[in-house]
Design a protein around this nucleic acid. Structure first.
Length: 696
DNA sequence: AAAGCTCCTATTTTT
DNA sequence: TAGGAGCTTT
């Protein structure tokens, strides 16, 4: 929550210099910390003390007189922002010689691009013709809105099936974030939808118009709006003045739109620090451009300085050797070889098992064995490419009573009952939000799509939507249930209703609907709503709660086990994406076979395969002491596959070449030698930057 | 017009 | 597993 509080900063008193706060840094880290005003690129290998270095640089800037309130610190995830703000604060606290009772200095402008964008837009809304009461759509909401627009266009019965709402939204988002024409994005990223170019364009125009009319912003609008704000000279000047140094973490995962924002914020790069590792770029599907980090030097010419952090403080040398060998075969990268002076440590293991069930049993055995040897479950993690790869393991763990928490692929906000409840709050917050209203109206028995539509249209047409709501006459069958809803909305609208108590009123109203709609598992779903109420209590207002929940949804799903106690020992299961930036003593990676890693859907282009390689690299470099790669000989591919429905794939991942495999200890029956290699990368085409109205 | 039913088809990772 | 389309019954 670092970015929420904005207390006055303590004056940096130069009088009490404690011992050198940067004494523990190695020479390269120190160079990055002490570097002056010119643009700086810190290429930080995995485990090379990146967070420490960035935090130290923040501390150094403040010690040299920078105002913490004007320091913009952009991170990839909310978790990273908190961690960074916490460590920088601690370092400053020491360096300034503050007493233990004094709070560490805060960094109010530390956060994700999206969160900072939301804040700036909220603040400047009045001046840029944006409704001040806008609400933010999470992905599910955006998809629902897209679905409404999709339906209105009526292309249902056609020669080929129109793309699903989720696909439509993905195309839309990719086009904005890559700042490229729709046709090109379709051709490169969604070739199977290319035939729908004109329809999609019309649909996106309608989608944008709907958002405007309903005072809604989606994730992309937070960046787009920020970007457009900076296009205005007056505002750009003001914003430029407002922020001093700008530091960007995980720069390899920024996209073109984000890079454009930075360029407007710091045109000549002075005061700009970016930190990242091109070898860990794994978010191309979100339009991240490795070119951003690869081309940083050229962008600012001779002025830019690059510092390389290669010394690894996390892993043993045998683990680093294997990781280096995997990434060494990648082209298009800043050459970088991690090393450590920590000798010893066992070689990583390459474990061959018969199939997924075998794999699950083996991993569960291994986890318990490690714990016998004194390694707590919290020091162990199992990583995998996609959310459902852990299904068999989850069953096995549950069967053996091994507690675990799964990160990635979160479901909480996507569950229908959670969305229902939030829709009520959103509608109360923003009566013009037809999307929320439509959803809520449909909850009332007797009201279907047609009646809900009429209601929404009536409200949209009226000068005072709240009055139109009260005046609306529902179908006779819905009369009494409708009256109850109107009563609830009255309570929520009145200034008297306090937060978060009003959520209880919403739950009370929703309870019968929950019973009716989800009779079989209403009790379980009710638990989720309790969880929601706990989250609500942590926020000061309804508006804040809705914004926070959209930008920072709960990270882990706790499945049947319920939320784990903080002090309980539990194993971590995580997608590789969600494991970024973390570390464990013992790491096991599932399904290191072709078809899973690389995912067979991602083998279409050389760039996609290269990203899968980096994904494996990221997974391997999470391990401090023990690393195991699992290779099931047979892998069951579910029904969702073309032609033959239950294909059995096989074969070691193409990334584990014989040379790489030689760095592992082999466990279990003889595995087939992998003799496939990457196809060579074709030269990359230069992509012209396109600005302006995309949908016209 | 609403609601409940069947049947078919899907590209993974997340702010 | 759900999303989406199309059907039938109320």
């Amino acid at each position: 929550m670092a970015q929420l509080a904005a207390p006055a900063p303590p004056r940096p008193s130069r009088a009490a210099p404690v011992d050198d706060p940067f004494a523990a840094l190695n020479p390269q880290q120190r160079a990055a910390v002490m570097h002056g005003d010119e643009p700086l690129l810190v290429l930080a290998g995995a485990g090379s003390g990146k967070t420490l270095t960035l935090a130290a640089r923040v501390a150094r800037l403040v010690l040299d007189g920078a105002d913490p309130n004007r320091l913009l610190l952009l991170t990839f995830s909310r978790r990273a922002a908190q961690e960074m703000a916490r460590r920088a604060g601690r370092m400053l606290h020491r360096a300034l010689g503050l007493r233990a009772t004094q709070p560490p200095p805060q960094l109010p402008w530390a956060g994700t691009f999206h969160a900072i964008g939301a804040r700036l837009l909220r603040e400047y809304a009045g001046r840029i013709g944006l409704a001040e009461d806008f609400t933010i759509l999470d992905r599910g909401d955006a998809e629902d809105l897209m679905a409404l627009v999709r339906q209105a266009q009526g292309w249902a019965a056609a020669r080929t099936r129109f793309p699903l709402k989720a696909t439509c939204l993905a195309i839309y988002s990719r086009t904005l974030n890559r700042q490229l024409p729709l046709a090109q994005v379709l051709q490169e990223d969604f070739p199977w939808c290319a035939a729908w170019h004109d329809e999609l364009k019309a649909m996106f125009r309608a989608y944008a118009a709907e958002k405007q009319a309903q005072h809604l912003l989606d994730y992309d609008d937070l960046l787009l709006g920020w970007h457009q704000m900076l296009a205005d000279d007056g505002l750009a000047m003001q914003l430029g003045d407002r922020f001093g140094p700008v530091l960007v973490d995980e720069y390899q995962d920024t996209n073109r739109l984000q890079a454009a924002i930075l360029r407007r914020l710091k045109p000549d790069g002075r005061g700009l620090t970016v930190v990242g590792d091109d070898a860990q770029s794994i978010y191309a599907f979100r339009a991240a451009e490795v070119c951003n980090i690869l081309g940083f030097g050229q962008q600012f010419g001779d002025a830019a300085r690059t510092v390389l952090l290669e010394r690894n403080y996390r892993s043993t040398q045998p683990i680093l050797d294997a990781s280096n060998a995997v990434i060494a075969l990648a082209e298009q990268r800043h050459a970088k070889t991690l090393w450590t002076d920590r000798r010893g440590g066992s070689r990583p293991r390459l474990v061959t098992v018969a199939d997924e069930l075998d794999q699950a049993r083996w991993v569960a055995d291994s986890v318990l064995e490690q714990r016998e040897q004194g390694l707590a479950l919290t020091q162990q993690a199992v990583l995998f490419r996609t959310g459902h790869h852990s299904a068999a393991l989850e069953l096995e763990l549950a069967r053996r009573d091994i507690p675990f928490v799964k990160f990635g692929g979160l479901k909480f906000l996507e569950a229908a009952h959670v969305k229902d409840l939030l829709a009520v709050l959103r509608w109360a917050q923003n009566p013009r939000g037809a999307l929320a209203g439509y959803r809520v109206a449909l909850l009332v028995p007797g009201i279907g799509p047609a009646a809900a539509r009429r209601l929404i249209d009536a409200m949209a047409a009226a000068p005072d939507p709240a009055a139109a709501l009260r005046a609306w006459v529902p179908p006779p069958a819905a009369a009494s249930d409708w009256a109850a809803l109107v009563g609830l909305l009255d309570v929520l609208q009145s200034d008297a209703s306090p937060w978060p108590a009003e959520l209880e009123a919403v739950r009370a109203w929703y309870q019968p609907h929950l019973q009716r709609l989800h009779a079989d598992d209403a009790a379980v779903r009710s638990l989720d709503l309790e969880q929601l109420q706990r989250l609500a209590a942590a926020q000061g207002s309804r508006e804040r709660f809705l914004t926070e929940l959209t930008l920072d949804p709960p990270e882990a799903t706790s499945d049947e086990a319920g939320p784990p106690h903080p002090d309980e020992d539990y194993l971590t299961l995580s997608t590789i994406h969600a494991a970024k930036g973390q570390e464990w003593n013992a790491v096991t990676i599932l399904n290191v076979i072709d078809g899973c890693l690389p995912a067979d859907l991602a083998t279409g282009s050389a760039a996609a395969v290269a990203e899968e390689r980096r994904l494996l690299y990221v997974a391997m470099t999470r391990a401090k002491q023990q690393l195991q790669l699992m290779v099931p000989l047979r892998f069951h591919v579910g029904q969702q596959h073309r032609l033959g429905d239950r294909h059995l794939y096989g074969g070691m991942s193409r990334f584990v070449t014989p040379e790489v495999a030689a760095l592992f200890d082999r466990v279990a029956p003889a595995a087939p030698a992998a003799d496939r290699h990457d196809p060579p990368l074709p030269p990359r085409a230069a992509q012209p930057l396109q600005l302006g109205a995309l949908w016209d």
